[in-house]
Design a protein around this nucleic acid. Structure first.
Lengths: 205, 205
DNA sequence: CAGAGTATGTGACTGCTTTCACAAGGTGAC
DNA sequence: GTCACCTTGTGAAAGCAGTCACATACTCTG
């Protein structure tokens, strides 16, 4: 198991492999080849084998990969054997949808804290959880040992929100605000902006 | 203006440049250097200059880039001078949030058609638009000349939905279903799966 | 158990992306 | 006008990522 410095681009593909393995299990497959996995993902078999070889030798020559075993290994590598508690900041339409999304739990995440700054919303229930005041973020994030947060606030509030999160030792941020946020080294950020994704495609139209 | 074959990875950064330029205009800046732009985006100045050089010479030595002019050029390159009509398929919690998102219009998009397969929803209004039956998709997509669609249906329905869209000449798909969809060559796909984005970060935790 | 078929893991290679470094040219102070 | 200072655009170089091709080894049939 080499496992030295793995390129980020490789890490980024692991969740896709894991997701596909879960579907394979649902479909009753017990074994899968890099070819079949690649076909489903639109990725070359060689690339999948190389990616996985960064972490160990999970396959069997002549047969392929044991689906359950590989799933377990990837789950371990990505640290999603456990379920991470996640804070959701901003409970507008998007925050609402995220709070009610039931796909998180089986993937290793659970939204356990929800925040908003609208007095009309604070105290209300969403997806079985109370909406807390953003003013209480520092205390509650610490108490719950939160390391992962989802930001679904307006652009104008995003950087300030992120600054608080970082100060409270959050280390991974999924940012839905359509603006670039800056964080200190060691804090991971992933951005989701539908307009950016769409514009990337209109270039080719 | 060379403009031969531009790497996709370069195209993917253009919307980020454009987004940042819009904020710069709001803030009243008339000129920006590659250095300042890079600082805001976490990208090296050299990379920004090289990216832009694929499309022409937009800057002035000693000064930088005229913000308005560069914005106009990028808008042109990305084909978002016009507003594209977009179809939204699936009007659950997420679809609802997307239909009500008011950030699309200024970025070159407008959700003009909404579809769902739930008889209880068909005919209802969302964000000022009627929810249509997915059975009417072929007819309505053609009538409106739709080329772009957002898929927000359950995973189990995603591939079938995409197949219909492709048949109706949709050429760009923003897929929110947490599953890999396959499309013929020439059709663009962008995937958004929050769990995948989160798992990419937990590797580092 | 032999042999045809199949699939992995990996070094070498190819091609793509990013960074570097600098000539060319614009700016602004005085 | 001159000079010190900036900033762009771009070849060259360096660094990364993806593909190829094959040795190795397992499977399955008969």
């Amino acid at each position: 198991m080499p496992m030295g410095k793995v390129p980020d681009i490789v890490v980024g593909r692991l969740p896709l492999y894991l997701r596909t393995l879960n579907y394979l299990i649902e479909e009753g497959h017990e074994v899968v080849s890099s070819q079949e996995l690649g076909r489903r993902l639109g990725i070359s078999p060689a690339q999948i084998r190389k990616d996985l070889s960064h972490f160990g030798e999970f396959g069997k020559q002549g047969a392929g990969y044991d689906v359950n075993y590989l799933r377990k290994q990837l789950t371990h590598i990505l640290h999603v054997e456990r379920v991470w508690p996640v804070a959701l900041v901003g409970c507008g339409a998007l925050g609402h949808a995220l709070a009610n999304y039931n796909g998180f739990l089986t993937k290793g995440f659970e939204i356990t804290l929800i925040f908003d700054n609208d007095p009309a919303k604070i105290g209300q229930m969403v997806a079985g959880k109370v909406i807390h005041d953003v003013a209480d973020m520092p205390r509650l994030l610490c108490e719950h040992g939160i390391r992962i947060a989802i930001v679904a606030v307006p652009s104008s509030a995003a950087q300030a929100t992120v600054d608080i999160l970082v100060k409270c030792r959050v280390r991974a941020i999924l940012n839905y605000a359509p603006i670039n946020i800056s964080v200190p080294p060691g804090v991971q950020v992933q951005n989701i902006d539908p307009a950016v994704h769409l514009q990337r495609m209109t270039y080719y139209l």
